[in-house]
Simulated assay, not measured.
Amino acid sequence: MKLLAFLLLMPGAVMNIEREREKASLLYPYGLEQNDQKNPKLDDGTSQELSLAVPFTFYGKEQRSLYVNNNGVISFGTRLKQYTPDPLPMVGGPPFLAPFWGDVDNVQGGDIFYRESSEATLLARITQDINQYFPDIPFTATWAFLATWDHVAYYGSTTNKGNTFQAVLTTDTKTSFTIFNYWDIQWTTGAASDGDEETGLGGTPAHAGFNSGDEENFYNIPGSQTDAILNITQTSNINVPGRWVFQVGDFKVTEGPTKVPKPPPSNNNCWL
Rank of each mutant, 00 (worst) to 15 (best):
T233H: 02
T189Q: 03
N71W: 13
V91Q: 05
F177Q: 06
F6L: 10
A5S: 14
G202Q: 02
T233Q: 07
T148N: 01
S157A: 09
T171S: 03
S75P: 12
L80E: 07
V248S: 03
V104G: 03
T178D: 06
D36N: 06
G77W: 05
E18D: 09
Y30W: 15
V240M: 02
A208E: 03
P263Y: 02
S65D: 10
L52S: 07
A144K: 04
D250A: 03
P138T: 08
G156I: 04
P85A: 03
V14M: 12
Y83H: 15
E49T: 11
R19T: 11
P261K: 13
E255R: 15
V152A: 06
G203N: 09
T258G: 00
E116N: 05
N237K: 07
F145G: 05
I137K: 14
E49Q: 11
F96W: 15
R64K: 15
L169Q: 04
T175Y: 11
P94K: 10
E198S: 13
A228I: 07
K2S: 11
P95D: 07
L169N: 04
G202D: 01
N163Y: 04
K259A: 15
F96K: 12
T159D: 00
Y155K: 08
G203E: 07
G162H: 07
Q48G: 13
L201R: 14
M15K: 15
P263M: 08
T204C: 06
F246P: 01
N181L: 04
S224Q: 07
L4D: 13
G102K: 11
K61Q: 12
Y154A: 01
E255T: 14
L4Y: 13
T159P: 00
A24P: 10
G202P: 00
V152Y: 05
L42V: 12
Y133P: 06
A191W: 15
E119F: 13
T164P: 00
K38G: 00
T164W: 00
E198K: 13
P94F: 11
Y219A: 01
M10E: 04
G72T: 03
T158F: 01
G190S: 02
F251D: 01
T233F: 00
T148R: 03
